[in-house]
Amino acid sequence: MTPWFIRQPSYPAQLQQAWADATAPRAPDAPTVISTFAGRGGSSTGYHMAGYHELLAVEWDGHAADTLRLNYPALDVYHGDIAHLSVAEVLRRTGLQPGELDLLEGSPPCQGFSLSGQRQLDDPRNQLFREFVRLIDGLHPRVFLMENVRGMVAGQMIRIYQEALDALRGAGPGYRTVSGLINARHLGVPQSRTRLIVIGVREDLGIQPTLPAPQTGLITVRQALHGLPDEQDGMKLHDKWLPVWARTGQGRSFKDLHPRGHMFSHTKIHPDKPAPTILKTVGVQRDGRANNGLYHWRWPRLMTIPELKRLGSFPDPYRFATTGDPIDDFVNAWNGIGNSVPPLMTRAIAQHIRQTILTPGAR
Rank of each mutant, 00 (worst) to 15 (best):
W4K: 13
F5C: 07
F5V: 09
F5R: 13
I6Y: 10
Q14L: 15
L15T: 02
Q17H: 11
Q17I: 04
A18D: 13
D21C: 12
T23F: 01
P25Q: 11
R26Y: 08
D29P: 00
T32F: 03
V33W: 03
T36M: 12
T36R: 01
A38N: 04
G39R: 06
G42N: 08
T45Y: 03
A57F: 00
A57D: 04
V58T: 08
W60A: 13
G62N: 10
H63M: 13
T67D: 05
L70D: 03
L75K: 02
D76P: 00
I82T: 03
S86T: 15
R92Y: 01
P98A: 09
E100Y: 04
P109K: 06
Q111V: 14
G112K: 03
F113M: 07
L115R: 15
L115A: 13
D122M: 11
D122W: 09
D123W: 03
R125Y: 07
Q127E: 13
F132Q: 04
H140S: 11
L145V: 10
L145D: 04
M146F: 08
V149P: 05
V149M: 01
V153K: 09
V153P: 05
V153D: 04
M157D: 07
R159Y: 05
Y161D: 07
Q162E: 14
R169N: 09
G174L: 05
G174D: 08
R176A: 11
G180V: 10
G180Y: 10
I182E: 03
N183E: 12
A184Y: 04
R185E: 12
R185C: 13
V189L: 02
V189G: 02
I197R: 06
V201A: 00
R202I: 05
E203W: 07
D204I: 09
Q208A: 11
P209D: 06
P212Q: 06
A213T: 14
T216R: 14
G217S: 12
T220Q: 02
V221S: 06
L225A: 07
D230S: 12
Q232D: 12
M235K: 12
K236F: 09
H238T: 13
P243I: 09
A246Q: 15
R247I: 00
G249Y: 06
K255G: 15
D256N: 11
L257E: 01
L257N: 07
L257I: 06
H258R: 03
S265C: 11
K273V: 06
P274T: 10
A275V: 05
T277V: 09
L279K: 15
L279E: 14
K280S: 15
V284P: 02
L294T: 08
P300F: 09
I305P: 02
I305Y: 00
L308I: 10
P315R: 05
Y318N: 01
P326S: 11
G336I: 00
N339E: 14
V341G: 00
P342Q: 07
P343K: 07
L344G: 06
M345E: 05
A350N: 06
A350Y: 07
I353M: 01
T356P: 02
